[in-house]
Every structure is written in structure tokens, then in C-alpha cells.
Design a binder for these strands. Structure first.
Length: 415
DNA sequence: ATTGCTGAAGGG
């Protein structure tokens, strides 16, 4: 049986702050190729930061050279306790025994919960939708898997992460900040947005822009890989996909990438056009608006020239900046593919954004989370995905499909 | 608290 109903993730206590830097080469805008970013020491980080501060004023155009902060291990705050698992009664396999009344009651309640409630999720990540699109059943197995038994990340994923980090560091510093609670984490997110807005306004390029908002009644959170202006002055979203093989992805995979960037656009456009209210954010996420920010977070806010003391302050400031900065909506969506092996460019795609079609897809995927429809595994023609799935041996969808396959074959033969 | 909560993306 699945251990269903565990908390969604255990979470580290740290946040990451993106610092626009000028560093030494504010003017040169040179980029060092082939730097190894993985082992920059703390002292180096500090000196780079100082350099950045001394040249704070000019965040313009190309001069944005970025350097690194490596998240320091150790420093484990007394934040999320690892106990995270709520052992609800859903996993009880005593079907014959009626059990005490309160257990039956709890069980009934459990069954009436939608997946969002069942897994204690206040929001979804944009990439949750993408894995859902790949295989909804696989995504659920992953969520239900106890955290300590989760399959390790593949080599391709790790390689992808490090390539993305290296690219990010070309554009700005990453400084790790100790956060004490969710309020602190959201404050860091806001600080990052506040730092990136002026860069965008002055025509610069940014990476890892946080986006969020409500879509079809469900709160969604994501991070835009890259935003920049094209030669024709359009605001372009770029999503880099690194590949373990020097080939372009199959259609099934490309579709998930397309949905990802389309949802980013929906969220970003909503943010700059003031669709989301700050009270709404606070309420949906159940944040404490009057919560004093942690000392490290405050310190970074002050460094950015902000006088804020509570989460409410910083959220309101962020929302004001977003709506009054007259940032454009995203004009074009671009997927870029390159080979992990030698960095070779494999191709790129311009994604056609059709709001109606995107919303239809979003509505379909979200309807699962709302409990409006049954779970759905891969279509019969996509069963090749099962060959690389960790759960294929226990997959109920697969069993069910195998049992019905002969009929489908017959039907096909009969035309 | 008979209640609470999550870095997202990472690639197939």
C-alpha cells in the first residue's frame, strides 16, 4: 500500500537571493567562458559581493556579469522537522475488519478529499503540470512514495541542473540566505523579483524569475528560466533544455515543454498586469502578514535599499513595483535544446501561444487535482514511457490497460 | 493546534 498523505516535501531552511552585480567588469561586460563555478569558496563570494555593492548603480544592458555563491551546507535551522509524515488511516489494509468508528469516519473523510487536500498541497508547481502531462499516474506514485525511498535523480538531471546553474551565474550572483519560515522564503522571492524588475526595465537579461498566481482556482508557482529582449525589442522567454542524447525530444516530451512556457507566460502576464492581489497571495498561502522578517532576510532587504520589516510590507512593495513598472507582457516563447555532452546546440522552437488552448489544457490537468475526474495514465500509444518508469511493476493503470488491450486490438482489426 | 506544511526545476 502507498503511504499516502505525507507532507509534500520536507524543505530546507535556506533561500537563494539573486543579486544583480556590477562587479569589476560593469563596463567591460566580458564573460569568462569555461569557469568552474562549482567550487567557489565563501571568501571569494564575499569579495565578489563587496565588489558588487561598490558598483551598485549601474544595472544596465550587457554589463551584468554574475558570479557565484554556493549554498553552504551545515547550518541546519530548526525549521521543518523531518517527521513530515502524517499517517492517515487510508493505508490500513484491514478491509475485513470494520474497525472502530472513528477510523471508518476518518477513512471516509480521506476518500472524499481531492488530491490537493489529500497530499496537503496549497499550490502546484508549473513543472508538476508537466510531469502530470508526461504521466499522471507516475506523478502520483512519486508523490505517494515516502521521501526517503524516492528514486535518486538521474545523472542527466544532475547534469542539467549544473548547466543551468552555470548559465544563471553568468547573469547574476546567487547568495544563500538563511530563512526561518515560509514568510521568510516568500520575502526572498519578493526580493529577487524587486531586484530583477529594474534590470528588465533597462532592457537587460535576467534568469530564474519567480512567477506565481492563480490559474483556474489553483495557486501555481514557477521560475522562468530566462527573460530577455530580442533584437526587435520584444520580450522573449527562453527555456533551455539540456539533453543527455544529441537529439531533439520526441513530440510527447516537447509538448510538456510547450505547456511549461505557456503557463509561465500566463503567470508572468498576470503579475505585471495586476491580476493577483497581495491579500490573495497571503490568504491562499496562509502566510502571516505581520510576521517580522528574519534577521538575514532583513539584512539583505536593507542592502537592497528597502525599509521593510514585515512580510506584508515586502509583498505590497513587490506588487506595486510589478504593476507600476509598466513591464511588457511576454511576446514570444522560445525553447532551446542543447546536448549535455559537448554543449552543442541542437535546435530551438518558437512556441505558439494560444490562450484558449493553453487554458483548456490547464483546466484538464487541474481537474484531476480538484477531484473532478479519475486519474489517467498514459495513452496506449505512449506505453513506451513505461519502459523507463520506476513504478511500471506496480502500476495499476498499466494492469488495467493490459487487461483491456485485446478488445482494443479487435476493435482496430474490425476498423 | 481533534492542526500544520512545500525552494522549482532537473530529463525521459
Amino acid at each position: 500500500m502507498q503511504g499516502g498523505g505525507e507532507a509534500h516535501g520536507a524543505g530546507s531552511a535556506d533561500g537563494e537571493l539573486r543579486k544583480a552585480t556590477g562587479s569589476d567588469d560593469c563596463e567591460s561586460g566580458e564573460k569568462k567562458e569555461g569557469d568552474d563555478f562549482s567550487d567557489i569558496s565563501d571568501s571569494e563570494l564575499l569579495s565578489l559581493q563587496e565588489a558588487a555593492e561598490s558598483c551598485d548603480a549601474y544595472i544596465e544592458g550587457e554589463g551584468l556579469e554574475m558570479v557565484d555563491g554556493v549554498t553552504s551546507p551545515g547550518k541546519i535551522d530548526a525549521t521543518t522537522s523531518p517527521e513530515g509524515q502524517l499517517h492517515n488511516s487510508a493505508g490500513l489494509s484491514c478491509s475485513e475488519m470494520p474497525g472502530p468508528p472513528e477510523v471508518t469516519q476518518r477513512k471516509r473523510k480521506q476518500e472524499s478529499l481531492n488530491p490537493l487536500q489529500k497530499y496537503h498541497m496549497r499550490y502546484l508547481a508549473v513543472t508538476d503540470l508537466c510531469s502530470q502531462m508526461w504521466c499522471e499516474q507516475q506523478m502520483v506514485y512519486k508523490i505517494e512514495q515516502p521521501a526517503d525511498l524516492l528514486p535518486e535523480k538521474t545523472a542527466a538531471m544532475n547534469e542539467g541542473s549544473s548547466i543551468h546553474l552555470a548559465r544563471e551565474l553568468e547573469v547574476h550572483d546567487v547568495v544563500s540566505v538563511t530563512t526561518r519560515n515560509r514568510e521568510d522564503s516568500w520575502a526572498i522571492k519578493c526580493l529577487n523579483i524587486l531586484a530583477m524588475i529594474p534590470v528588465l526595465q533597462s532592457g537587460g537579461r535576467i534568469r530564474e524569475f519567480p512567477v506565481f498566481g492563480e490559474l483556474d482556482g489553483i495557486f501555481m508557482v514557477g521560475v522562468i528560466d530566462e527573460l530577455a529582449y530580442s533584437s526587435s525589442g520584444e520580450l522573449e522567454l527562453r527555456e533551455l533544455k539540456t539533453r543527455a542524447t544529441p537529439t531533439l525530444p520526441r513530440l510527447a516530451q516537447k509538448r510538456t515543454h510547450e505547456l511549461q512556457v505557456c503557463v509561465y507566460k500566463l503567470l508572468f502576464d498576470g503579475m505585471v498586469s495586476g491580476v493577483l492581489q497581495s491579500e490573495c497571495l497571503i490568504q491562499i498561502l496562509n502566510l502571516r502578514p505581520e510576521q517580522e522578517l528574519g534577521p538575514e532576510v532583513k539584512e539583505h532587504a536593507i542592502q537592497s535599499g528597502l525599509t521593510v520589516s514585515t512580510l506584508k510590507d515586502i509583498i505590497e512593495l513587490t506588487f506595486l513595483n510589478l504593476t507600476f513598472s509598466e513591464l511588457p507582457r511576454i511576446d514570444s516563447l522560445k525553447l532551446e535544446y542543447c546536448y549535455q555532452g559537448d554543449g552543442a546546440f541542437l535546435g530551438c522552437d518558437i512556441v505558439n501561444f494560444k490562450e484558449k488552448s493553453v487554458m483548456e489544457q490547464v483546466t484538464f490537468y487541474l481537474s484531476f487535482w480538484k477531484g473532478q475526474r479519475e486519474i489517467q495514465g498514459v495513452d496506449i500509444e505512449d506505453t513506451w514511457k513505461c519502459r523507463m518508469c520506476n513504478y511500471s511493476n506496480i502500476c495499476e493503470w498499466r494492469t488495467q490497460r493490459t487487461n483491456t488491450a485485446p478488445y482494443r486490438t479487435m476493435a482496430k482489426r474490425l476498423k
